[in-house]
């Protein structure tokens, strides 16, 4: 949910890359991290298995800078695409403001695309959200595959609501920015429309949550419906198709190690040989002092270790806190 913070003078939006396993969500984020100007991007943090499959999410803040007096930021997340990880995938969707659905153009993956899109709709419903009202776009990735399914055909199977679509070859960077730019514009437009009808309430929430991942009624009134998506061009990939590396037929749920395509210049690859890893790659958004970054790593890793411990059932939960 868009957070508008008049005290910090910030607008924060949450964007999620969704789609079936191996469709290229993490690759999209890696490219954004690689190509975004230094002053606009924060670190890329990945919580993944040793096979580089996303386990919980990848995360990267992208700072648009000062927009009419408000520092406007997108928090970019990817979900784990594997069917097995639906519980964590659903958690990442909490409070989402815009979705980029990354579909795989491989004809053999068409059922997975359709299933994942249905899963998106279902998970959004659990948060009381209707996909038709949520800014979202679809990216047809892996257009370099020699047997890539014709766009019109995928479109007829997948794009039920006629949202903007983009062709991409994520690992070359092709189509990555146009996809994100259009989605970002749709999200910002939805904020503007909501704001047109005056914000109402101040701080958060009535006490005591309802069970399950549903959200409780709160806050400011916004009375304008979400925007209809603007039609957008689908850029055709330019240049020679690359040979396809390391694709395997049916990846096991926990991801065997696989080759990563080389990410050019200076971007350290994902860490290898850890059963569960938190990988971080640098870049600082302005007010976070650059030299301080190292210091934060231990803390973050500490936090994640604790999270993992929690997952193993060892965490120490405190019950005694007052009911709010």
């Amino acid at each position: 949910m868009v957070q508008i913070n008049f005290a910090l003078k910030e607008v924060n939006c949450k964007v999620v890359f969704y789609g079936p396993g191996m469709s290229g969500k993490t690759t999209n984020l890696e490219i954004v991290h690689q190509k975004a100007p230094e002053e606009n991007k924060g670190e890329l943090t990945s919580i993944s298995t040793d096979g580089d499959r996303t386990l919980f999410f990848d995360f990267m803040p992208l700072d648009l800078g000062n927009v009419a007096g408000m520092r406007t930021k997108f928090q970019l997340y990817t979900v784990p695409g594997q069917v097995y990880y639906n519980s964590t995938r659903k958690l990442v969707l909490q409070g989402v403001d815009g979705v980029i659905f990354v579909a795989d153009s491989d004809p053999e993956k068409m059922d997975e695309n359709v299933e994942s899109y249905a899963n998106l709709i279902e998970n959004l419903e659990e948060y009381g959200k209707d996909v038709r009202e949520l800014p979202h776009v679809i990216q047809y990735n892996k257009r370099d595959l020699p047997n890539a399914m014709p766009v019109a055909e995928i479109d007829s199977r997948l794009n039920k609501f006629g949202v903007p679509t983009f062709e991409a070859v994520a690992y070359t960077g092709e189509g990555v920015f146009p996809t994100l730019k259009t989605l970002a514009a749709m999200v910002l437009e939805s904020i503007e429309k909501m704001d047109g009808k005056a914000p109402r309430r101040a701080a958060p929430a009535a006490p005591k949550a309802a069970p399950a991942p549903k959200q409780a009624a709160t806050l400011d009134a916004a009375t304008v419906p979400a925007p209809a998506p603007a039609p957008a061009p689908a850029p055709r990939p330019r240049g020679p198709a690359r040979p396809v590396g390391a694709r395997r037929p049916a990846p096991p749920p926990h991801g065997a190690p696989r080759l990563r395509r080389p990410i050019p210049a200076g971007a350290p690859g994902r860490s290898a040989a850890r059963s569960v890893g938190v990988t971080r790659r640098g870049a600082a958004i302005a007010p976070v002092a650059a030299p301080a970054k190292r210091g934060s790593v231990g803390l973050v890793v500490g936090l994640m270790v604790a999270l993992i411990a929690a997952a193993a059932g060892v965490a120490y939960f405190v019950y005694g806190t007052p009911q709010l």
Binding site: V2, A7, T218
Partner: peptide
């Protein structure tokens, strides 16, 4: 409290943003 499924569209949209004002944040700080 309203369940999301039983909400009107306006009520649902009211969920879609979280706004914090300076006077509240000052108190919180």
């Amino acid at each position: 409290m309203l369940e999301p499924h039983s909400m009107s569209q306006n009520q649902r949209l009211r969920h879609d943003r979280l706004t914090f004002y300076k006077e509240d944040i000052d108190q919180i700080d």
